Simulated scan of single mutants.
Amino acid sequence: MAETGQAADENARHAAKMARKKAARDRMMAGKTADRGLVIVHTGAGKGKSSAGFGMILRCIAHAMPCAVVQFVKGAWDTGERRLLTDRFGDLCQFHAMGEGFSWETQDRARDAAAAERGWQKARDLIRDPAIRMVLLDEINIALRHGLLDAAEVVAFLCDEKPPLTHVVLTGRNAPEALIEAADLVTEMTLVKHPFRSGIKGQPGVEF
């Protein structure tokens, strides 16, 4: 069936618009560098910071890229991501749960600080290994916020010692300004609505 004159004009305008957009996109992409390891921050009060980080870990696994996770808070929690990564993908992803729970559970600042330092030492070792392409530092921002780790030291390490092709993802609310400034990619999760405020506890498959 032949196009009407109006439909033909709309299709022609659309094709011309898309051609201009493609040309502009091609010019933009021509100036981009091929490969570079990124410092990525997921922060904000909204849900999804760790989930986004683990999504990136799964992408690495799909590309057969060695990766690693260091958890700074959840510790001994039996989480779905921990089960999946250790049971199915342990050959590609190292998983280190270094935390001992939230500070209101341990109620011991010295113990929390020692756990955070152990986690940071493990993180440094993993990041320094050029064979590992991505390291997820899950909820490290919580340790930074509470002064359990020195934000300036973390930023300096990422700037000075991270191998050039290694991606590092740091999650947790209240990321320090120095980290945000140093990062290549920062996403802030905005809280609009959360079931916890309606009396609903964390759900398997959603929170853990």
Rank of each mutant, 00 (worst) to 15 (best):
A19G: 12
T4L: 00
A123L: 11
A34E: 12
R111F: 03
A30E: 04
T166R: 03
L58P: 04
S51C: 06
V69T: 12
S103G: 00
D26W: 04
H42A: 08
N11C: 11
P66F: 06
D160L: 10
L92R: 10
T171H: 11
E153N: 08
A16D: 15
I61D: 12
A182G: 15
K162P: 11
S50L: 14
G172P: 00
E188Y: 01
D112G: 10
A151I: 01
E81A: 03
G48H: 09
G80P: 10
W120P: 08
P130V: 04
R128C: 15
G80N: 04
L136N: 13
Q94G: 07
T86V: 04
L84S: 13
A114N: 13
L144M: 11
R82M: 13
T171Y: 08
G119F: 06
D91T: 14
R145W: 08
H146G: 03
L191S: 06
G5T: 03
F54K: 13
A19Q: 14
P66Y: 05
R36G: 01
A156F: 02
D78Y: 07
F95T: 09
E117M: 15
L137A: 02
H14T: 08
L136A: 13
E100L: 09
A7S: 12
R13S: 02
D138Y: 12
A114G: 10
R20N: 06
V135M: 03
R145L: 10
N174T: 04
H96D: 00
I142D: 05
A123M: 13
A143Y: 01
H63P: 00
L38V: 08
A175R: 10
V41A: 02
G75R: 12
V168Q: 03
R109F: 13
E188R: 06
G119L: 05
A34L: 14
K193R: 04
G37W: 06
E188F: 00
V192E: 01
E81C: 10
A152K: 09
V39Y: 03
H146D: 10
P130L: 07
A116H: 10
G46M: 00
I127T: 05
R82H: 12
G37Y: 08
G101R: 08
M29N: 03
R88K: 13
C60A: 14
A175M: 09
E139P: 05
E100H: 01
S50C: 13
R36M: 12
F54Q: 09
S103F: 12
A183M: 11
S103L: 05
G119P: 11
G48P: 02
G202F: 02
Q94R: 05
E177T: 14
M18D: 07
H63N: 07
K22P: 00
G44Q: 02
A97P: 03
M28E: 06
S198C: 08
C93M: 08
R124W: 12
D91W: 15
E81I: 05
A8M: 11
H96Q: 02
E10C: 14
V73I: 15
L158K: 02
A114I: 13
Q107E: 11
V70A: 04
V168C: 07
G99T: 00
I127Q: 07
A178N: 06
L58F: 14
R124Q: 14
D108Q: 07
G75Q: 10
M56Q: 13
S103K: 06
E81S: 09
A113K: 15
H14R: 13
G205E: 08
Q203G: 04
E81P: 03
K17R: 14
A23Q: 09
V154A: 05
R133M: 15
P163F: 11
V154P: 01
